[in-house]
Design a protein around this nucleic acid. Sequence first.
DNA 1: TTCGCATGCAAGTACCCACTTGCACTGGTC
DNA 2: GACCAGTGCAAGTGGGTACTTGCATGCGAA
Lengths: 206, 206
Amino acid sequence: MIATRKLVDAGRSASPEETRERILAAAREVIGRKGKRGATTREIAEVAGVNEATLFRHFGSKESLLVACAQHFCGHMQLADVASQLSGNVAEDLLVIARLMHARFESLQDMIRWSFVEQDYDSDVFAATAWRPQLAILTVLTQFMQRRIDAGELQGEAHKIAMVFLGIVFMHVMGKKKFPDSPLHGDPDKALRFYIDVFLNGVTKR
Amino acid sequence: MIATRKLVDAGRSASPEETRERILAAAREVIGRKGKRGATTREIAEVAGVNEATLFRHFGSKESLLVACAQHFCGHMQLADVASQLSGNVAEDLLVIARLMHARFESLQDMIRWSFVEQDYDSDVFAATAWRPQLAILTVLTQFMQRRIDAGELQGEAHKIAMVFLGIVFMHVMGKKKFPDSPLHGDPDKALRFYIDVFLNGVTKR
DNA sequence: TTCGCATGCAAGTACCCACTTGCACTGGTC
DNA sequence: GACCAGTGCAAGTGGGTACTTGCATGCGAA
């Protein structure tokens, strides 16, 4: 019974909060691989090292677990501190913002990918929650652009050029697996600098 | 038995090829809404107006149907004729290509969205096939950029700036549902011209 | 007319999934 | 020491899903 003992102890050693955390982390991992539909409670429990019944005792239903998962990992994020890092130089500031975007996209990539498709056809709370960070970033980006336009440094409409910049960085992250042989996916910082250069100056030869 | 008669006749009136076509179209439609996993053979058959057994008699298995569907709609496309429409003016030519990209992305949007997430973790033939048109477009785009660089009109590396342009247009299509209140999603042609302007000249105020 | 092929229809099989339940165990709290 | 909350475990339930099968039907070709 030693083996049984060990397993039991492993479960027992953690507090309920720790158990909850493990389940949420496992859910995120499995959803990243299989998606909302493809993720089974069985596999999530297995990855979490927890009995399936425990999962339901914690979250009640699969749907509740997924929503809790999206809220846990994609909830309110602190973006305000970006402003303090800005120097005044447009290119440098854009790099700061781009790094932030890149990091966020990268770390939430799997969730975002699925929120991209499993959309609102079902008034999907999960997808809406998982997409929130992107909207937040777009807001920050738009505000930044507006300020630079007002200062006479950039031209165009703030939300439009913000969308372009967001699209470029977003596509960079999402494209890693889809265009794996692209030379852009070596040094991320280098790629970001390149994008900023194109964004600011265009590709026309002068 | 008139009702039964009608249904039967509806099925009978079509040739096996037509039946096959209807099933493929239905599969595409349902996959677009529910995804590969979420699409059930029952619903596909229902949408196609055929019996579920007929679906299996045609395609053998759901997986075979999905692969056939991807091949049918995302198979080899004729892109070569773009070259004949090019004028020599970079901005105008980019608009021609962008319109083509936009139309393709738009019409294949649902399939592409799903191929985006249900990726190769399962050596997924469906996803690989559905993604092929994007790779084809990137190739055309890269070649175009290379020619313009060689002609001294553009600067940078062809594949890199091609990726940027692709990303912008791709994000435009994919973002329609995710950023519904963006002013870019009114007149597509206007948006494409705007993207091309930013791509060529940047957003820096001169 | 006759025959075969494509289909409809209904029933069924085997599996998987979300979710439940009852019981046993244990570690910490009083 | 007694109790209890949190967990493991095993079995089970009900519904959905892919896929099969046997038979009836009718259209079109021989």
